[in-house]
Design a protein around this nucleic acid. Structure first.
Length: 487
RNA sequence: GCUCGUGUGGUGUAGCCAGGUCCAUCAUAGUGGGUUUUCAUCCCGCCGACCCGGGUUCGAAUCCCGGCACGAGCACCA
């Protein structure tokens, strides 16, 4: 019998204690579900190899995907929450501009690249026609001069770009003399970090910035999405110029969550700005904040991504998979609570009542204690739907037959197979609110909630309803229903 | 169009590089049952897959060739 692998595959040529990994999001918004994959996989490898994990902010575009100032701190908090500890290093690209300039200058000096004054359209013709653009033959000196003019703001965005010299006849058109740095109008689109603002007009593009930074940080292994495969090839060509060794690289495929379809940070940002959502933590959004707020645990998120692993297959996963992981993590510690939707007040009759009735806080853990309700008044709330069924067993209490607003006690012992339902006494309940999401809408449900003294943030199981998280304002937000059914 | 990548049950995933021990692993979903005074948790059973066609070989999920399908890149975005 062959060994079946469990957990992540080994990193190639990895030595314990000498592995350096990184995850590099654009801080144009807080992290979302998809980012969690990069965080979970890379930080798990850090643990496996006792290596280092770098969180890097690739904030080099101020116009198309402008960074969001608050995101820098939030992403660090989210990283700590999800991976269980702080990154070993935090690198912000916009703080590293001098290093990128230095390498750009070196690249031009050595003839590894050139300053190209062709328009984007003109260059596209060269790219598809496999012909050299005229700028390609400039001398190092000419290139360095043009480079200085770029830095001196003698050009406007769009006029000029620094390219890496590869080979215009390469089979893959994406790799032909790819652009490394360009100009940005940072007067019109200043960088949101005050120390950066409009200080620079020349900015590196991802492939250049990332390649140089990976080398400078000593990154040994890169694990990222396969959409960046060509990026690896571009960067490898640059590494060859400089005589550097490119890190070992692994890729994962695209993941679609059936219920969410496509979403992007930029689009969410727009929706929030236009008021379609009140903020990034909205439970309808697939942000880490939104998921956490609904009661998805970090452990469940980790288990989810680890299970998918790093295959290059493009897959579509239902949310129920994530919920199944979450139930597993949360159930054993979730206190049970009674919440009555569409409450109907009934009076208990037909027998003398006990003083109190007790329920376990969690039936699988006696140590969590019990909930005790005072039965003096004999008034209880039941759900409308249950009342209509006529004969019920009130959980942990008695069989009753419904007659109007009377619940006549039939027996305390279980006498037949009638349904067991949750309930609450009037005295031990208050007004309560349960929020849930459906079809991109938030549904508010008011009802009678069992009194409790739980702290905000606690994830509970509302009996016969689902897992929910207690919010600051006292309302609950539904994470997922108790029985997860695929639709 | 060019380039690259991927195809294992309903959904994921292991096995593929180094062919037999694979009548193919594990999970999830579905289904049936057990425990349980929750439509929860937990436990047990069942269900169900190697994209297609050739080739190599005593032997192919695994190697080779050809199809087909799906995805990504070809941005002065990340």
């Amino acid at each position: 019998m062959k060994e079946r692998r469990t957990g992540l595959p080994d990193l190639k040529d990895a030595q314990k204690g000498k592995v350096v990994l990184r995850f590099a999001p654009n801080p144009n918004g807080p992290l979302s579900f998809g980012h969690a994959r990069g965080l979970v996989i890379n930080s798990t490898y850090r643990e496996m190899y006792d290596g280092e994990f770098i969180l890097r902010f690739d904030d080099t575009d101020t116009k198309v995907k402008p960074p969001m100032l608050e995101a820098y701190d939030r992403i660090q908090e989210e990283t700590a929450w999800l991976t269980g500890r702080k990154p070993d290093r935090v690198v912000i690209a916009s703080d590293r501009m001098e290093a990128y300039y230095e390498h750009a200058s070196l690249m031009l000096e050595k003839g590894y690249g050139y300053v190209c004054r062709c328009s984007a359209e003109a260059f596209k013709e060269h790219r598809v026609g496999k012909t050299n653009c005229p700028c390609r033959d400039q001398t190092s000196l000419e290139n360095l001069e043009l480079w200085q003019q770029m830095l001196d703001r003698k050009f406007s965005p769009g006029d000029v770009v620094v390219r890496v010299k590869t080979d215009m006849t390469l089979k893959n058109p994406a790799l032909r003399d790819w652009p490394a740095l360009r100009l940005q109008d940072t007067e019109a689109h200043p960088h949101p970090r005050k120390s950066i603002g409009s200080k620079y007009v020349v900015w590196p593009l991802l492939d250049f910035q990332s390649a140089v930074e990976d080398h400078l940080q000593g990154v040994t292994h890169i694990v990222r999405g396969k959409d960046l495969m060509d990026s690896t090839r571009k960067q490898t060509l640059l590494y060859e110029h400089f005589g550097w060794n490119y890190p070992e690289t692994m890729y994962w495929g695209r993941v679609k969550v059936h219920e969410w379809g496509g979403f992007s940070t930029s689009q969410m940002r727009l929706d929030i700005e236009e008021g379609r959502y009140p903020g990034w933590g909205d439970p309808r959004l697939p942000t880490l904040e939104g998921l956490k707020g609904r009661g998805i645990s970090d452990e469940a998120l980790r288990a989810f991504w680890l299970e998918l692993g790093i295959t290059q297959k493009d897959i579509s996963v239902p949310l129920s998979t994530l919920y199944a992981h979450n139930t597993k993590v949360v159930d054993s510690t979730a206190p049970r609570l009674s919440f009555i939707r569409e409450p109907v007040l009934c009076s208990l009759e037909g027998s003398e009542l006990p003083k109190t009735v007790s329920h376990p806080v969690n039936p699988n853990d006696e140590k969590m204690g019990s909930r005790t309700w005072n039965m003096d008044k004999g008034a209880v709330y039941l759900e409308q739907d249950d009342v209509e069924r006529g004969a019920l067993r009130l959980k942990e209490f008695a069989d009753v037959n419904l007659a109007g607003s009377k619940a006549i006690i039939h027996s305390f012992e279980r006498s037949d197979k009638r349904s067991i339902v949750h309930w609450i006494t009037e005295e031990n309940s208050t007004e309560g609110t349960l929020l849930s999401t459906s079809n991109n809408e938030i549904i508010t449900q008011n009802g009678r909630l069992e009194k409790h003294s739980l702290k905000p943030g606690t994830i509970v199981q509302l009996e016969r309803i689902g897992y929910a998280r207690l919010q600051e304002d006292g309302s609950f937000i539904l994470c997922h229903e108790v029985s997860i059914e695929e639709k």
